[in-house]
Design a protein around this nucleic acid. Sequence first.
DNA 1: TCCTTCCTCAACCACATGGTTGACAACGGG
DNA 2: CCCGTTGTCAACCATGTGGTTGAGGAAGGA
Lengths: 127, 127
Amino acid sequence: MKKLNKELSVVDDQLSRIFAALADPTRRDIVARLAVGDATVGELAEPYDVSLQAVSKHIKVLTDAGLVSRSRDAQRRPCHLEAEVFDLMTKWIERYRQRAQERYERLDAVLAEMRGEERTDDTPEQG
Amino acid sequence: MKKLNKELSVVDDQLSRIFAALADPTRRDIVARLAVGDATVGELAEPYDVSLQAVSKHIKVLTDAGLVSRSRDAQRRPCHLEAEVFDLMTKWIERYRQRAQERYERLDAVLAEMRGEERTDDTPEQG
DNA sequence: TCCTTCCTCAACCACATGGTTGACAACGGG
DNA sequence: CCCGTTGTCAACCATGTGGTTGAGGAAGGA
């Protein structure tokens, strides 16, 4: 039963890009500022001590993840935060957070039961 | 106004570790399985085509991020999913998703208004 | 047309990361 | 006590990532 069919569905792939994009504090900061309002690369770069090119790269990572879209306004290329993509993340998170939470609550019940009975099974179904 | 005070607060640091941990599909898969029930490294490694050591490393990344805790049961070191840490993420996400969503909805209103009036302001307050 | 502004591309560098293999530590069963 | 089971540590390797600098494209303004 080796070699789990790792065809890396598109959603899975995007999820990876989103999480990876948000793993960087600078990029999270940029997202935070874009939540307030659209901004150009230059404006976004201004508070940081790094080159404009570095910030441009961060923006690219964010756009590749679908978190940011670009438009054109003369020479400017304003960045816009795409809120919908967050849903993909929250859906993923909520699914497992809930399961884990339920399991945790069930554990309480089990522990209460165990005080009077005996344990037969160790690991719940898995796969 | 350069050099944003980048002291990388503890929360920020953990947030980075959490997002980075979940950026890997294998680790997300492990989290998914741990949501169903606790498991040992060996059990977790079984479906994959990689060495046990590689999976052990993944587990280490997850524990360092606070997503997984370990216990001891004879030679076994079962992995347990820590659901609370998810809250840190969802809180961060929700904050900016909401802002962006509100901004988006406000845009609708503005566009509707624009059909009858004239525009004076372009970019909402920012900073 | 030439210049300026805004931004991206390309090459490079240091370091992090995911994988490997080999050694070995921790624990319980004979 | 020795052995098997379970898992980690250490060293190594290939690739990815965030940063740099330099060159240059795209779009107006003079």
